[in-house]
Amino acid sequence: MKKRLNITLTWLIILTVTTAIISGFENFRLAPYLILILAAVKFNLVAFEFMELRSAHAFWKFLVIFYSLVFVGIYTIILSS
């Protein structure tokens, strides 16, 4: 179990540093979308691994995935407008 948490933390840190680096690419037009997608991945990693949502009822899993998708979706529409 601890090994799984270690791997999760490693990925979370890698993704955090990656998003910070991507934000520095001024001419990369897809950067904001990519950053938001990576943020959603991190959001789900924390919920499913740290909060043990993977052992919870399907409703709670759906809620977290749905929220992150809707949030990224709305932001994508806002940034594209």
């Binding site: 948490l5 999760t8 979370l12 955090t16 910070a20 934000s23 991190k42 924390v46 740290f50 043990e52």
Partner: peptide
């Protein structure tokens, strides 16, 4: 300051990791 924001994200995530270990 993006660096401060990034460092703070790492602090919070690492803190969350320790809390998850504590629950175990």
């Amino acid at each position: 300051n993006t660096l401060m924001g990034t460092v703070n994200t790492v602090f919070l995530l690492t803190s969350g990791y320790f809390m998850a270990v504590a629950v175990q």
